[in-house]
Amino acid sequence: MLKALKLEPEKCTGCLQCEMACSFENTGAFNPAKSRIKVFTFHDEGRFAPYTCTQCDEAWCMHACPVEAIVLNMATGSKDVLSDVCVGCKVCTIACPFGTVNYEADSGKVVKCDLCGGDPWCAKACPTGAITYVAADDTGMERMRAWAQQAPREAGAHANPPKAKEVQVFNVPQQGGL
């Protein structure tokens, strides 16, 4: 079964555990600057969003590479960079519409997500479930369920917003745990 990374920005807290896991797996050090998954913080909107390669079927990067250094991993569906073949021409970085292939000055090669060979460290490290590794055919299933749940059981049911939670004060002293 082909699997894919599923990203749910609304669950992200911006902690960068994914970036550390990715860089550790690929470089042996915790180094967000070298991570192939990036978390973007939109400060003024109070939003965080993880972003990485979606492993396009007809991958622009793979087709654009003049030396065939980007190849399909038949086991995982990822498009992997063969770093000993890559000549660092950066054409793939231009071809990718999403910006998820990037040049690394230290090595003179490009790097991108390779799904860690089928066991992506970013998903294992995410503490909130914002990054999961799921069946590629089902990435939309949870969102469908959420929308389905909102479908009204009877006319007008959805017009009643949930009641504000009552907050009690000065009741029994609450000691010894939450």
Binding site: C15, Q17, R47, F48, P127
Partner: peptide, 14 residues
Amino acid sequence: STNGACFGCTIACG
């Protein structure tokens, strides 16, 4: 709006 984490924090109390 949301809770936010400091670097590397899996609690995210911010």
